[in-house]
Amino acid sequence: MPQTPAGILSTMRSVSPSSPRLVWHGQDGRIELSGRVFDNWVAKSSNLLVDELDATETSRIALDLPPHWKSLALAFACWQVGALVVLPEEAGSPPDADIVLSSRPDPGTAPSGQLVCVALGSLALGWDGPLPRGAVDFAAEVRSHGDVYQGRSVDGDAPLLRAGGRTLLARDLLDSVTLPADPGDTDGRTLLLEPGAGLERALAAALAVWAQGGVLVLVEDGLPVTDRLLTGERVTGRLGTA
């Protein structure tokens, strides 16, 4: 069973790669990503981080982003290149980092590093509005990068996340999530993370669900979780916001 981001991505590429792994319900509609498609987004993002932003295993990359399918792809890209993901201590206040990935309408200037503006619209082809001087437009640049990441594998015990004054490993994030009991005792469950969860919770949920071969459903904060949605996605369990 894969217990690290690298293991999860390897499984997505090799085991039922056309099966859904992540479903997003947002203001702009529903997006379903298979294992292959998610892995492609991670690879493209990884190549952008390395080729354009010089990300390395010593980089600290701030994710000033809400829970979103692009946020998960970017986090896995950071981990694929060996970088440490750093979460803001307070909303709207990006931490000091080598690279800051932000979706805020007015991201301002990165405290000390490179700013990357991330448009969250699923079909967005570029940043909506003036791009701060020197910033990189994620949506405009990422599609030009390769679908395969050729970098070397990163140590599975490397720290993944800095949040709330803590540095967390994969096992710490996995231990923070208790998956609902599965009456059928089978893999491949579809679990929904309740809207309103923070990004740390979403990342931990993704690791836990995908480590067991399941499907994660994310719903944008403010959208209702209806019976129709639960039935349509065949949700078998729900994860709380904390």
Rank of each mutant, 00 (worst) to 15 (best):
S93T: 14
P132V: 02
P107C: 02
V148P: 01
P67C: 13
K70M: 15
S153A: 13
S112Q: 13
V100R: 05
Y149R: 10
D98F: 05
S144H: 14
A140T: 07
E89A: 15
G113K: 01
S112T: 13
L84T: 08
Q150C: 04
A135P: 10
P88F: 14
I99V: 14
S93W: 04
A139E: 02
F76H: 15
V142Q: 07
D157H: 14
R143D: 14
L84A: 04
L125N: 08
L120N: 00
D155E: 06
K70T: 14
Q114H: 12
L65Y: 00
E90D: 10
V116D: 00
D96E: 11
H145W: 10
P132E: 00
Q150S: 13
Q150P: 00
A97C: 09
G82Q: 05
V142W: 12
D98H: 10
D98M: 04
P105A: 10
S71Q: 14
P95H: 10
R104Y: 05
D137K: 10
A140E: 14
V100C: 01
A77V: 01
P107K: 04
Y149D: 11
R143Y: 07
P88Y: 13
V154R: 07
V86G: 00
L101V: 08
A139V: 07
G121Y: 06
C78A: 15
F138E: 02
P88V: 05
E89W: 10
A119R: 12
A110K: 06
R152G: 15
P95V: 04
L84D: 09
P95F: 10
G156D: 11
S144N: 13
A75C: 06
L125A: 11
L125W: 03
L87P: 02
A110M: 03
V86A: 03
D137F: 04
D137H: 11
L65T: 08
V100L: 02
A158P: 01
L72G: 09
S71P: 13
L74V: 08
K70F: 15
E141T: 12
L65D: 01
G129N: 08
D155T: 07
P107R: 01
P159Y: 12
V118C: 08
Q150I: 03
S102I: 10
L87E: 00
R143W: 10
G146N: 12
F76K: 01
R152F: 12
P132Y: 11
S71H: 13
D106C: 01
L101W: 03
E141D: 09
A73I: 12
W69F: 15
G146L: 02
G108L: 05
Q114K: 13
G156I: 00
G113A: 02
V154H: 02
P132I: 07
E89K: 14
A97G: 10
P88D: 04
E90I: 02
A124L: 03
E141P: 00
G121K: 07
P67T: 13
F138M: 01
S102H: 05
S144P: 01
A73T: 14
S144W: 12
S144Y: 14
G113T: 04
V86K: 05
P67G: 15
C78Y: 13
T109E: 07
G156V: 01
G92D: 05
A91S: 09
G129P: 08
